[in-house]
Design a protein around this nucleic acid. Sequence first.
DNA 1: CGACGATTTGAATAGGATCAATGGGAGTGG
DNA 2: CCACTCCCATTGATCCTATTCAAATCGTCG
Lengths: 232, 232
Amino acid sequence: MRLADLPEVRAIHLFRSMEEETFNSIFKAAYFQTFPEQVDLIEEGNPADFLYVVVEGCVELHAKANGRETTMAMVLPVGTFILAAVLNDSVYLMSARTCQKSRILMIPSQDIRAAIEKDKAFAAAIIRELANCYRAVVKEHKGLKLRSAVERLANRLLRYNDAQGGSGSLLLPFDKRTLASLLGMAPENLSRAFNTLKPYGVVVDGSTVHLTDIKALKMLAKPNSLIDDRVI
Amino acid sequence: MRLADLPEVRAIHLFRSMEEETFNSIFKAAYFQTFPEQVDLIEEGNPADFLYVVVEGCVELHAKANGRETTMAMVLPVGTFILAAVLNDSVYLMSARTCQKSRILMIPSQDIRAAIEKDKAFAAAIIRELANCYRAVVKEHKGLKLRSAVERLANRLLRYNDAQGGSGSLLLPFDKRTLASLLGMAPENLSRAFNTLKPYGVVVDGSTVHLTDIKALKMLAKPNSLIDDRVI
DNA sequence: CGACGATTTGAATAGGATCAATGGGAGTGG
DNA sequence: CCACTCCCATTGATCCTATTCAAATCGTCG
């Protein structure tokens, strides 16, 4: 890793509070690289050699079984992935690929584990991060079990709208095929779900979506902070 | 908490490696109680006042939205629940009720957080536990997205069979309505799924299930260690 | 025995998946 | 600049799975 990159990495919340010494020991053997899009970073079932941190760009976590495949989550800056596998010294449960050109930090997992042993502040930061990851999956799981496909889409649109300033116009952050998989539906079904939402003021124009009647959409979506809020 | 209970609690993996002093400080204000079945222990949305540890019995974690309700997980001894909410000092994402008479340990969450600050060994144990909880939810989520209802049931039966000694006869650990909800289907559908599995050697007799053709069942279920193994 | 809840079965329906075909941009090469 | 191609998205038609509603059966407990 280049010396010039260190200050940027040090500013990341996960590494901000750790001791100087721990920081130096971790980043001796770390990589900080830019990958083009559609690069497979890890594959499920392989041993967890690195902890990954997305600094710029976007990474898709996906999984497969029985020949089917699904998107599990999208990781945006600054987010980690595969933290639990690293802590457990186990195998990855999910695969990861870049879906844009992305700057990725890779830290050998044994260094992470050693740093946790030594550095209480870092251990605390890791616990916070892991707890947030856990709660994010629980929310996804709740959404999938308790909501219909149309409701999941409606809430997702409301979430993106909020995240992008609440103007009523939002840009889908990835292509529709990925969004469909993330929401647990077939791409064809996503199209139909958008049509179903038309009477609730959802106007789709390519990857731009206008919400012209948020009140009606919320009535249908019944957003729930225990599912939809990013940090709670 | 009664003095006589301390050795039993100390033997639990989560509290085994912590320092004596931390242990004492935590269990001054802890409760160790036996609850009858069907007691609501916590409700989603409430602040996380306690960390819960199931020492005997069984606790159902469930969640609701839009008037629907679903079972998220069953916690068996010795397992914790609601750990992430405690660590984050946030609200519970799930509700919990006993589904048998259960002995439950309740530790005030501020004591947990303070102990993590002070005690590295305890922090490490908490990290392991949390990482396992995370991976358990990821596996559930994968199963739900990648498998049909019948496949989920088939794999669950294989798992219970293994956990109970692999004799080919197993006892369903909770009633069918709960199992159905856990697997993400309606109770009626669970009945039908059992019928679908009859040609694969699945014989149901009340809450006892005999697997008379495990090879055929595995052919259908396609068990996957990255979804079905309890610890990996 | 009688009552209640859990489970099973049946029939009708809805939601989502699959298959097939069409439309529409973005990028490529002439 | 324009045709060509390819891939994504949409639409239509059909099929299948799972849900819903209703009723019957089974078991357990008082």
